[in-house]
């Protein structure tokens, strides 16, 4: 009986069993800052200690604005928010305007891929980072991701791994995987793998107006 229960539990834990209307109670997650998304995540948010893989075609898709509310909340904690090898300059005036306390941000530039994985792993497992943002590229293989996931579960922070869209076909140990697409209203998120549940359909999330006082949805300007 014992073993039967154990295997049932593990099936439930992995979300492989559909339980009808009952959803398994998950430990409380870290709110993503988007109520529509939180509603659909077990524990009403990202479960700490996990890698979240975000796939997108290129910068400008809303990949940072998606995280602004979360980063703003996490920056109130004493831990670091660490950025490892961002593709461009994270623009401090914009981050500050989004309510992020940029004094908690730590920038790391590695000089080689091995160093990058090493830095990500150290940051994830140190427990000194509330969030670890990494731009790992397509080359990160499953073994590397497995190590990073293990490190994340040791440190209990959140690890966001930004990768090109084409990585969707590759195996990945990240418990959350999502495709991110630019959308006129904000961003469209397809969470095709997640903790304790099946994949979610494409979800449109409105984002904070990036241009300040002017209306984004106003008619296009005349060509100057």
């Amino acid at each position: 009986m014992q073993t039967a229960n154990t295997s049932l539990d593990s099936l439930l834990d992995r979300g492989n069993l559909w339980q009808g209307a009952r959803t398994r109670t998950a430990s409380k997650g870290i709110p993503s800052g988007h109520p529509e998304l939180d509603r659909r995540l077990a524990g009403q948010g990202w479960q700490p200690g996990n890698l979240i893989e975000l796939l997108y075609t290129g910068e400008g898709s809303g990949e940072l604005r998606l995280l602004y509310p979360l980063l703003a909340a996490l920056s109130q904690q004493p831990q670091w928010i660490i950025w490892v090898d961002p593709p461009h300059v994270p623009y401090a005036p914009a981050l500050a305007a989004a309510g992020i306390d940029i004094r908690r941000i730590l920038m790391v530039h590695s000089r080689a891929r091995q160093e990058q994985y090493w830095a990500l792993e150290q940051a994830l497992k140190s427990g000194e980072c509330s969030a670890v943002l990494g731009w790992a590229g397509a080359q990160a293989d499953d073994r590397a991701l497995r190590r990073l996931q293990l490190a994340a579960s040791q440190g209990q922070g959140l690890g966001f791994l930004f990768r090109p869209k084409r990585c969707r076909q590759l195996a990945s140990a990240a418990p959350y995987r999502a495709l991110l697409e630019a959308d006129p209203q904000g961003v469209a998120l397809t969470l095709f793998k997640r903790r304790q549940g099946w994949s979610l359909p494409r979800l449109q999330l409105p984002l904070q107006d990036p241009f300040g006082p002017q209306d984004v949805n106003s008619a296009p300007l005349a060509m100057p």
Partner: peptide, 29 residues
Amino acid sequence: APAGNDITGGLLNRLQSRLGPGQVSRLTV
């Protein structure tokens, strides 16, 4: 910090030691 975390404030030291002091920084406006 969760158990198993060896050195507090150790992350910065480790990053700077391995990557070099110029590779780790903060942001400001």
